[in-house]
Design a protein around this nucleic acid. Structure first.
Length: 750
DNA sequence: AGCACGCCGACT
DNA sequence: GTCGGCGTGCTC
């Protein structure tokens, strides 16, 4: 939608209206405050305006979230309006929704919608006092100033006009540009390389960054210098341009299969779910967004990882007809991100492809949001990491509602949350894949070894035939779990409570998620037994086993290690192996994924096995002790509806999403303090629309124990409200200050 | 009585 | 996130 109108419709009453301003201070403790709008700013203040207003006498950046009648109280004035930072009314609505359903302070959500890297706590030095270490014009952080000058010194410096509140956007680097001098016509008859360079540059009257020019022409720098010396080109330093690419595709119909050509419903608005084979995601996106682009609107494409974003950009550049501008947006861009943000805001990008952080970008006339690989958990930031702790699919659906644009979620195996969503998400007819590999389920019941004879002989045959086999192991390292043979307790990560992995060689225990590292204990901390065993098929152990059994080189393919990838047999993690195509895929231990205890384990297992049938050209081998498992059977048949029909009633019975919303609250600190906080300060304050589980200790090992409660309710906002209250128990008045709380609303897994 | 310190609530 | 008010407890 276009920029919302200013408050001109309320002209008659404006004089008596005060602006409700959410200051960009990320805490739940501050509600939006009211500020009087001075006459000279009255035309410029609307919902979404970025304004400077003071709190405790200091200027702060805030966003106008509403208006209210000015009451008796003598209000502070809005000091300034920053149109260049203002949000649309729609994005304010999106932020308010995020704040309501995910226990995130409104300021945090608003910050995510503002340009990345925006420095909101800085001052520019105007008139340095004697002895200051800053020169005039430098930008200094508020905290630094307070540390050096003291709070009174800061106040005085501000009052004296020595420093001035400054909102700084990260400046793009300067890079060297080359451009042809007007009317330059050098004699280059005997300088072919200079001529080539000159002709190439002549086609770009606006000039080109030197690095790009040299890369694209393959000419070296001295040649360019020579041209400059002759006065044919000029070199100058300019701000680095935003990384925006022109499309250069051919006729689009070539790449669109019939189902895609035939189904344009999704481009007309509404929320859609489309089961499309993974290999066809890029072409499907191209086809769908092309319809939107021809309407003159823009498209936002969200992918789970940077690599997927880059692949999509390459594919869209090559397939969309010429004349559209495509850009990739993700954390890898660093300072360029704010340049791209500005370009997107100006409407200079037609197709923005990005990771989850791109879901909040101010695309001015958004026609469609495509969420590629919708169930992928990387679409959601873990609380505490960069980005909002909310799934990009949910954000997309919210923006679709508020900004009246289409939303299309793509996956052959959509999340059951989406599939059974109470929201109005409609399904397009499935696109099926003709090709199906042969499937071999190897029943491991009664087998002693980890690698069956069937699997080993298949590996041998593949080596002989020169076929490529990808073996999927469950986790990195050697053994995935260390357990006590006596009491059965599992050695878990003290920080994130997931089983630790035993690494080869060093013998240390490592957490695959948070990077925790510790020694392998001599004995069990729970019962004291020394009978600890390392079980589970880590990548290293499988590689060792296959290597020994087959007597052939075995490659390794994980996020951090890639060796001998040209070997016939390659062992790796799920992400890496299933991201490519192989003649044969072998899932070495399907039970580790099928039989886990988390709420989404079965769904993830189904997805892994389904993906294996896509990535395998010839055969899929699955080793399991539960060959009849419904997730296994339906995945290998590629029967998503049958899987959903079996899994959804189970989730309903357990009251897991999509039939309830959960929030996990983890506490770190002394048990008595935690127990008191939970039972006497949190539980009594809960509304009747949510329920809270007992406080359970995560079978933590070393360090501080971790305690957790689950909050559950039918309504997402109610669960989020309760979770927010829980977060405040830690720091609230009279509360336990020496308590650390982490809140996670609608986690992908508990 | 006068002052330092830490806790708590208000801040628009 | 910051500030000031207030109560506590120590010093002069």
């Amino acid at each position: 939608m276009a920029q919302p109108a200013g408050p001109t419709t309320k002209r008659a009453t404006r004089a008596t209206l005060a602006a409700r301003v959410a200051l960009l201070i990320s805490t739940h403790a501050l509600p939006p405050f009211s500020y009087r709008i001075p006459e000279h700013l009255s035309q410029r203040v609307r919902v979404g305006s970025a304004v400077v207003a003071s709190l405790s006498g200091h200027p702060r950046l805030g966003i106008v979230v509403g208006f209210e009648p000015e009451g008796e109280r003598d209000l502070e004035e809005v000091r300034d309006v920053r149109e260049d930072l203002s949000l649309t009314r729609d994005m304010v609505g999106v932020c308010q929704w995020v704040c309501e359903v995910s226990a995130v302070p409104l300021a945090t959500a608003l910050r995510a919608a503002l340009p990345p890297g925006l420095n909101i706590g800085s001052y520019r030095v105007r008139k340095p006092a004697a002895g200051w270490r800053w020169k005039s014009g430098t930008v200094v952080a508020r905290t630094t100033l307070r540390r050096v000058l003291g709070r009174d010194g800061l106040r005085a410096a501000e009052a004296d006009g020595r420093i001035e509140f400054a909102l700084e956007l990260p400046q793009p680097r300067d890079v060297e540009f080359a451009l042809v001098r007007s009317a330059a016509d050098p004699d280059l008859a005997r300088a072919p390389r200079q001529r080539e360079l000159f002709e190439y540059l002549k086609a770009c009257p606006a000039g080109l960054p030197v690095a790009q020019l040299l890369r694209e022409t393959g000419v070296n720098r001295p040649t360019l210098k020579e041209l400059a010396r002759r006065g044919a080109v000029t070199l100058q330093r300019r701000a680095e341009p935003a990384p925006i690419f022109e499309t250069a595709g051919t006729a689009l119909c070539e790449i669109r299969n019939e189902a895609q050509v035939g189904d344009r419903r999704a481009t007309k608005g509404g929320s859609w779910l489309w089961r499309v084979p993974t290999a066809e995601h890029a072409t499907t996106v191209a086809g769908v967004i092309h319809d939107v682009l021809t309407q003159g609107r823009q498209a936002l494409v969200l992918a789970p990882e940077i690599e997927a974003v880059d692949r999509l950009v390459r594919s869209l550049r090559a397939s969309l007809p010429p004349g559209y501008r495509v850009a990739a947006y993700h954390s890898g861009l660093e300072k360029q991100r704010s340049v791209l943000y500005a370009a997107v805001r100006e409407g200079d990008v037609d197709v923005l492809v990005g990771t989850r952080t791109a879901a909040m970008l101010p695309v001015p006339d958004l026609g469609i949001i495509c969420v590629v690989d919708e169930p992928n958990e990387a679409h959601r930031a873990e609380p505490g990491y960069e980005g909002l702790p909310i799934h990009a699919r949910d954000l997309a659906l919210c923006r679709g509602r508020i900004e009246d644009c289409a939303v299309l979620c793509l996956s052959p195996t959509p999340s059951l949350r989406l599939y059974a969503s109470p929201d109005n998400v409609q399904e397009l007819p499935e696109v099926t894949e003709e090709h199906r590999p042969a499937v071999r389920i190897v029943d491991m019941r009664g087998a002693g070894a980890d690698l069956s004879a069937t699997l080993v002989s298949a590996c041998r045959r593949a080596v002989e035939d020169g076929e490529r086999v990808g073996l999927v192991a469950n986790r990195l390292g050697y053994a995935t779990v260390v357990t006590c043979n006596r009491c059965g307790s599992v050695k878990n990560c003290p920080r994130c409570d997931r089983p630790l992995t035993l690494m080869e060689g060093s013998g240390s225990l490592v957490c695959g998620r948070c990077g925790y590292r510790g020694p392998m204990p001599e004995s069990c901390e729970v019962c004291g037994s020394e009978r600890l065993s390392a079980t589970g098929l880590g990548v290293k152990k499988v590689r060792e086993g296959v290597c020994a059994a087959v007597q052939a080189p075995v490659g390794i393919f994980t996020a951090s290690e890639r060796n001998d990838l040209d070997a016939s047999l390659v062992v790796g993690t799920r992400q890496c192996i299933l991201g490519e195509e192989w003649d044969t895929i072998m899932v070495v231990d399907a039970d580790a994924v099928l039989l886990g205890s988390g709420m989404g384990t079965v769904e993830r297992a189904f997805r892994l096995l389904y993906r294996a049938t896509e990535a395998a050209l010839q055969r899929v081998f699955v080793q399991t002790r539960v060959p009849e498992h419904y997730a296994l059977q339906t995945a290998l048949r590629r029967d998503y509806p049958a899987f959903a029909a079996a899994e959804l009633p189970r989730l309903r019975a357990l009251r897991y999403p999509p039939y309830a919303h959960l929030a996990s609250i983890t506490f770190e600190g002394r048990e008595a303090v935690i127990r008191h906080a939970v039972e006497s300060r949190l539980r009594p304050t809960l509304d009747s629309d949510v329920e809270m589980s007992e406080l359970v200790v995560a079978p933590g090992a070393a360090g501080a124990p971790v305690w957790r409660v689950l909050i559950r309710g039918a309504e997402r906002a109610a669960v989020a409200r309760a979770a927010t209250r829980a977060a405040r128990v830690a720091g609230g008045p009279g509360g336990a200050r020496n308590l650390r709380v982490r809140v996670d609303v609608d986690p992908e897994e508990v």
